[in-house]
Design a protein around this nucleic acid. Sequence first.
DNA 1: AGTATATATCGACAAACGTCGAACCAGCGG
DNA 2: CCGCTGGTTCGACGTTTGTCGATATATACT
Lengths: 118, 118
Amino acid sequence: MSNNQPQVLPVAEEQAGPCCPPLASAPLSEADALQGAAMFKALSDPVRLRLFSRIAAHPSGEACVCDISDVGVSQSTVSHHLKKLRDAGLLTSERRGTWIYHRVAPAALDGMRRMLDG
Amino acid sequence: MSNNQPQVLPVAEEQAGPCCPPLASAPLSEADALQGAAMFKALSDPVRLRLFSRIAAHPSGEACVCDISDVGVSQSTVSHHLKKLRDAGLLTSERRGTWIYHRVAPAALDGMRRMLDG
DNA sequence: AGTATATATCGACAAACGTCGAACCAGCGG
DNA sequence: CCGCTGGTTCGACGTTTGTCGATATATACT
């Protein structure tokens, strides 16, 4: 596993920089469109959006799955959605004892906001 | 079909009002999540995002399909994507003579921006 | 009329997605 | 140690999505 190439990967994993310029500033490049679309896609499902909102709205800034998992789908589906949000860079998660706490990643939100501004 | 959900309408056609409160202000209601997710979904495809960006970045504020349709997919696919953006309320279109001009709907963008702000 | 251009719609198809239950891993407490 | 609870991963399923080519509609120009 000694590969240190700057591999671009299936995208949606890492947002190296601030991701994307404002949509209205100039036509988006194909690469930027790929990254930007991945972020929007992460919030494009109602269940995912509600999960994200519940974490973002939590007073302590973080929430364990047990705290937000009553959204009407099975627990495994909740886990699946949280993974997608994590993979998109919108959430970070940390295990503390029995529970895993999730919090929003402000950088990703900044990227999306910047896209929409302009 | 053991699962008998109320299944909440087609949605995604009209956003009556400003759509949704900030994600971090309070847990999103199911209805708001449905509307919000529909807007994000509209921008969740790279081709669609590029089309939207090209319209938004156009100096005159509007663009005809012929002006933005070189994004690497067929003409019918471009039309399909523009329809989706229109249905999501992100674009308005107006026919003038032979061409149809598209422009961004600022209200929808405002809604998404408000969601992401905290 | 007839032809050419611009956009929309249709029908089909593969790929991606959301969902579930079941099986699995990780800590905790007896 | 063993069971219990929180959470992830797996395999399968029906549905949605993006794409195409072909066809249809609308406007313009001969």
